[in-house]
Design a binder for these strands. Structure first.
Lengths: 336, 336
DNA sequence: TTGTATGCGTTATCAT
DNA sequence: ATGATAACGCATACAA
């Protein structure tokens, strides 16, 4: 590999001068600058990013910690981050990892070993204190999909409660009064927040959600099928179903269809996330659009800005609200 | 940030000894080793990956260059790579980028600046010579989804021609004799290779594929809709459709349905890739399974092995063949 | 078994 | 405007 010294020799200057040229340093003769650039070109010089990071004490890359690239939700997230990285010409240090404490910890640790100063982290397994501590050590530490009051200005998150409210209200507006909920057993905050939104809204309408009308399962297709099977088997009476996400909603529709029940004629169903699947399943899902890409972009920009020490508002917090996308799975309640 | 010297001081040894402990060096007293580890633990030492990479002259990370994380195909690819990276405890340097010459070049260049020795590259825009040159400079340079004879042992690729053959034969076996093809206009090799496979198989069956029966469009949902609209508008006579990929197939089905045509009653259709979509669209797509995750795993392992200088067979090439997945979109030809 | 010394490729601080 | 020179944190050859 050819180094800065090689260039210096070939151009007949000191390596200090070459360094100045590379970094567009202020005090270099036009003549010299030109010659050095010429030589760099000819010899195909590539600055050693590691040496640079060492002396600078910082890696310029943007670190990313997500749970699972296969999940279209995270793919979208990654895509948003990638787009700002590309735009700002910054390298991505990606650590995918399951939702496990050790894995997440490990991922962040590796990033720190690289002295990465900007990172967007999606963590559901680590506790608040740990995260707060990281935020203290890493200038550009930003959390996505999580809200921790103490580091609010580093959080880009979704108002799940509002989401629960919107989807419920829509169904109420369509005349539904008998609800069932398919929730997720695995994650912690999101499901319960959405559930809270649902409960509040129902309550405001003079209704209550009996626990027997809630079914918990894994937050995927299979979980949705499973949950709906249980609902049906237990003879729960409902005309509308609120699902934790699109995958579960889709699974639930499959089971419904297997039992000869039509959506939305026999039952309306609303999903959450608005991933690709929502458009392709049959009937097309009415769901809540999760502006994850927009959020990812904001998170990446924020992380980079903080890492650069730019004076970003430290009082502000970045809350997003999901919006209703009406498609075909929810309709006016049908008299039996 | 606490360094190796801090540990040395605290433990009352030289920093060389500490270094030996870190790297499990051979000649360290049990007693010393234990004490040093103890101190590292207490002080929360994190080795500086950049310094290490500098002195070692190599970055241990695995570089990845893919086109577009949003595409579930690439997400699966990334997932496969990620799984071996995690298993081997190796960091991922990810560069997503559009399918453009400059972007791809830029991505590889950045990886080289980091002195990354292992990389899995998905390139469709760069020419053979450029890629061959990179392969010469980077020990662990591996191409995925591309075959270049001169560097065959660094290529993990799919036999597209065989794929074209399999899908065609399946439809022939179902009694179809009138074919239409929906191909992609954008990528270069894959579509034409698949087309070649289709042509060969048709020819062997005594049939020929008229150019007017081929419609080219963008390789996505919209492209599929568009292509099918044209086919229909031009009054092309067919009972079976061979699509370039699942997205196009799905789009084509939408158009068919809009025109009151039933799949597979009025027309059979076969996709390619077997992405999630294939299972969720209606009817479920008969398609060719592209073992991309398996291939990605192999590519990552290969890249890492080459980078480590392990004696991997240099004569072997890594060709994969897609397999038929029968679902509901292709059926026995229906007499009109 | 342990310590000393040197260098990896840069940037940055001095002089000149 | 340019050139010595020191430092960054670490691995390692060589001494002890």
């Amino acid at each position: 590999m050819i180094t800065i010294k090689d260039i210096a020799n070939a151009a007949g200057v000191s390596h200090a001068t070459v360094s100045r040229v590379i970094n567009n340093g202020p005090k270099v003769g036009d003549e010299t600058r030109k010659r050095v650039k010429q030589v760099m070109q000819e010899l195909g010089y590539r600055p050693n990013a590691n040496a640079r990071a060492l002396v600078t004490q910082k890696h310029s890359a943007l670190g990313v910690v997500v749970a699972e690239l296969l999940d279209p939700f995270f793919a979208t997230l990654a895509h948003g981050i990638d787009s700002v990285a590309r735009q700002q010409n910054i390298q991505l240090l990606m650590s995918a990892g399951s939702i496990e404490k050790d894995t997440e910890l490990q991922a962040i640790d590796t990033l720190m070993q690289h002295r990465c100063e900007a990172m967007v982290v999606h963590s559901k397994a680590l506790d608040d204190d740990t995260l707060i501590e990281f935020a203290g050590q890493i200038p550009g530490f930003v959390l996505i999909n999580r809200y921790i009051p103490q580091i609010a200005h580093r959080c880009v998150w979704l108002d799940n409660t509002a989401g629960g409210k919107v989807m419920t209200q829509h169904l109420l507006d369509l005349g539904h009064r008998k609800f069932a909920v398919i929730s997720s057993r695995y994650q912690i905050d999101d499901p319960s927040e959405r559930l809270q939104g649902i409960r509040n809204t129902l309550h405001a309408a003079g209704l209550t959600l009996d626990d027997s009308h809630i079914e918990y399962s894994s937050p995927d297709q299979k979980g949705g099928e499973h949950a709906m099977r249980h609902l049906l088997a237990r003879g729960v009476d409902f005309t509308a179903v609120l699902a934790y996400n699109d995958a579960m909603a889709s699974g639930a529709m499959t089971t419904l269809s297997d039992h000869g029940l039509q959506v939305p004629t026999d039952a309306s169903i609303v999903g959450f996330d608005d991933v690709l699947l929502a458009k392709y399943c049959h009937p097309k899902l009415t769901t809540l659009h999760y502006p994850i890409e927009m959020m990812a972009v904001k998170a990446a920009e924020l992380a980079l800005a903080y890492a650069r020490g730019e004076p970003t508002s430290t009082t502000h917090t970045y809350k997003y609200t999901p919006t209703l996308v009406k498609r075909d799975s929810a309709a006016q309640v049908h008299p039996r």
